[in-house]
Amino acid sequence: MSNLQVSVYRYNPETDSAPYMQEFQVDTKDRDLMVLDVLHLMKEQDSGLAFRRSCREGVCGSDGMNMNGKNGLACITPLSDVVKSNKLTLRPLPGLPVIRDMVVDMGLFYKQYERIQPYLQNDTPAPAIERLQSPEERDKLDGLYECILCACCSTSCPSFWWNPDKFVGPAGLLQSYRFLADTRDTATRERLTNLEDPFSVFRCRGIMNCVAVCPKGLNPTRAIGKIREMLLADAT
């Protein structure tokens, strides 16, 4: 796999009137590097190449990007998983405004996250120790709380592309259900009321791109289904 051919999305608002794809030749020394390693090698060639990264182990959610057409985290995606015929095309997450190169403006994504009130609400006085929760009750949070807010799911969702201001999107809804499912949370009714319009939840068309791309193996579609059930039960 020596001299991998990488095509990367470039756009610097100060100097470029339009985005373009730039070609790089990267000597991988035949190692099965992670895509993030390849980006670092490219940055040694051109220090101007901008991308986000932090933990480099798939837990901070900084380096979500589109690699050969599929969203994922660059730091835990080995070349052998994505490269086809020695070619790799890297683009920023789709559907969000580009600030520079691979860096997108995550504002809309975070706004939808904030909209679902992503924090525990409990109107009873806190005990002197922890609130008790059985292991079975706690198990209900598995597959929900692990979200790293990388936006791979929401930016692969056509419903989110069309209505990023009105449809909460898979990431936000997964977190919404994380609190609905928490036995310690007492704001269920208020949470459901906030989601009752035709867009917030019901714009999900079950396309399941979110499930296909989630780098943590989470299932937002299932969580959305559960919210729907709760909304319907609430309405009857």
Binding site: Y119, L120, N122, A126, A128, I129, E130, R131, L132, Q133, S134, P135, E137, R138, L141, Y145, F179, D182, R184, D185
Partner: peptide
């Protein structure tokens, strides 16, 4: 400080008796 975190919602794993 740890109980405060739990009250804030930190999803600690649990023992059978419901404690952290």
């Amino acid at each position: 400080a740890v109980f405060e975190l739990e009250h804030m919602g930190l999803p600690f794993s649990r023992f059978d008796n419901g404690r952290i």
